[in-house]
Design a protein around this nucleic acid. Sequence first.
DNA 1: TATGAATGAGTCTTCATTCAT
DNA 2: GATGAATGAAGACTCATTCAT
Lengths: 210, 210, 210, 210
Amino acid sequence: MSAAEGRLRGRPPATANGRTVPERLPDAAREVFAEKGFDGTSVQDVVRATEVTKGAVYRCFPSKDDLLHEICLRVLRMQNERLDAVVTTDLPVAERVHAAVVDVVGTTLENLRSTTIFFRPLHRLAEENQRQVRRERGPYRETFRALVVGGQREGVFRDDVGAEPAVDYCFGSVRHLPMGWRSEGGASADEVARAFADLFPADIAGIAAR
Amino acid sequence: MSAAEGRLRGRPPATANGRTVPERLPDAAREVFAEKGFDGTSVQDVVRATEVTKGAVYRCFPSKDDLLHEICLRVLRMQNERLDAVVTTDLPVAERVHAAVVDVVGTTLENLRSTTIFFRPLHRLAEENQRQVRRERGPYRETFRALVVGGQREGVFRDDVGAEPAVDYCFGSVRHLPMGWRSEGGASADEVARAFADLFPADIAGIAAR
Amino acid sequence: MSAAEGRLRGRPPATANGRTVPERLPDAAREVFAEKGFDGTSVQDVVRATEVTKGAVYRCFPSKDDLLHEICLRVLRMQNERLDAVVTTDLPVAERVHAAVVDVVGTTLENLRSTTIFFRPLHRLAEENQRQVRRERGPYRETFRALVVGGQREGVFRDDVGAEPAVDYCFGSVRHLPMGWRSEGGASADEVARAFADLFPADIAGIAAR
Amino acid sequence: MSAAEGRLRGRPPATANGRTVPERLPDAAREVFAEKGFDGTSVQDVVRATEVTKGAVYRCFPSKDDLLHEICLRVLRMQNERLDAVVTTDLPVAERVHAAVVDVVGTTLENLRSTTIFFRPLHRLAEENQRQVRRERGPYRETFRALVVGGQREGVFRDDVGAEPAVDYCFGSVRHLPMGWRSEGGASADEVARAFADLFPADIAGIAAR
DNA sequence: TATGAATGAGTCTTCATTCAT
DNA sequence: GATGAATGAAGACTCATTCAT
């Protein structure tokens, strides 16, 4: 209804709750993929679960794979934004690291099922899509690593251990969370988040801080 | 050499290298699944890659899913055996823990592609198969946890951190290894194994040991 | 300049180079159909290749099939016009026949790809469209036949061979030109045109002319 | 049932009238393709028209396109055989040519609908399939051309016209027969065959023979 | 018992056509 | 009149599983 965007062209996009198909489809599809796995979900399943017809799906995303790709990018972007928010705080390094870990673990667990789909081997994505995912992943890891290195330079963290393996170690574990290994245990999301955060700086920072 | 030889009846099982079909099929299939993913592999693919015909596959395993199940169990059993071997050593606790981590990481990386298949969400397996996998996983975790707790009791490890989260933390990361997040880096399998082992006791043992 | 200008109502037809959509669409579409075949071309392809939107296509032509139909009619009309031009010349019959053949072959080869689409079995067109195509085709053949018969009456052509089969023989071959059987050879369009023209009168006229 | 072919392996091929699927499918499919056109025929249509299930179709032919390819090859091989039979006769050249034309036209018309499918532009076939069709087509044309050239050398045919264009001229027309241009006329298959044969040597041989 | 041919439901994707502005 | 988003019925092809020997 906005008169601002010039002359509207073509049949106007159908909206539900004010969101157009390309906006809501990835979020809706993410749930279905999380539920049944990417390979286990047919496009028909997505259509059924969504208020979107099959034709509309393919109008917005050239393939099922590209739909997954978009979902991945959204999560990655979200994570990047959250990390940036934590990093640019005034808190001391050790606390920023702690907060960052609590944040990833927390949001990962809150969206447990939604994040499951990341465990699809990257190489199943189309070449170009792989590149883009990596491009998006890189900064995340780099930002985190820089934060740790900063702490090491400040002398707050010990530096006899490389920042990189420590970060990988931590995030490997975080990314594995949705897999369900531990879903058998009974800790709350918050408890797990704190446990992770307590463990992480122990490797790197705990000792020097002592 | 089997004492049952005397009552052999009907066509004897076909063997290759002295291994019968039900023996060698899972190992062969594991490679194919690792290569292309479970969903991405057709039974025909397995047949092509193996010296086993389709009829024989279905004679041994009632379904493709059951074949996967057997593969999972084998890996789990193997890991359990290796852990047991490490644990029952005379070495001091701290070293046993260290050795155990080096071992898992090492064997995981050596069989990187073969272990990839574990990242299939457990809940896609049939109900009964799920239970069995969990039954097999439990002991592994438990053995490891007991080892750490032992160290804590001996006063070799600090005990202000639960053994359980520390173990999960470590193994989450280990299980994530095949995912390739870090395959972009360039460390050798051995380097990674040591890095993991060095990091793990740091949380738990390192400090008290200092 | 139209005298009707005074009563123009509503939005005037969009034009490009002074040609309205229904005028230029068939010509543009013909190229695309020729390129990829009628069945191999989607309406979307037509839209992409043309400066015409999908809605406009369906405003002008009730279906993709009707669009093809219009294209066929245009070619047929064009051929009829050209033949008429040749026939109404003052030249001697034998030369008129010769010129006519050179003309069809030449224009067919020049528009090789555009004429390809005629090789779509007629019966795939809607009933009414089939009739119309036949109505248009009839005169062409008839005109040509009449020309030959005229030559026979004049005694310029031998008449121990029916005019009809000779004409069919010739045009069958002409219509087959776009199929590519001979595209493997290397003769120029003009050479082929002359060869055909030389061969044609040979059957019918050549001998008597001798 | 034959004991001669060694041990039978796998489920024996289903047969109808003693013909296995890969044997009868192309013939059956040819009819359907001829009826509705290649693009207009779905594999489902083929399945419906044949006593063959979809899976069986794809077991025998990797794609719909390869099925068409096989059909083409069969017709080409048949034509080659028939031509060879005519050519190796003791008849005088002029008569061999005449017989050859009568034969192609006759068989083409008898299988009118079956041969229709050849009018699918060659370039729509897969690269390798194209090559194979050309390999099969070449000999046919060459054999015919050689026959005519032989007649020219013997002085039976006039030689002021190339054998090649004459042959192309004739076969272009023959190949166009199924298109239906002339199906509107009412001549019998035999009449048409003779008309063609009478016309062909007219170009090339008739005159010299006079 | 082993074999591989056959089955047919199900997959992703395309596309002619309609429709809300 | 024009636009392009939406529709939904096919389409080609795959594949886990069964079955006749």
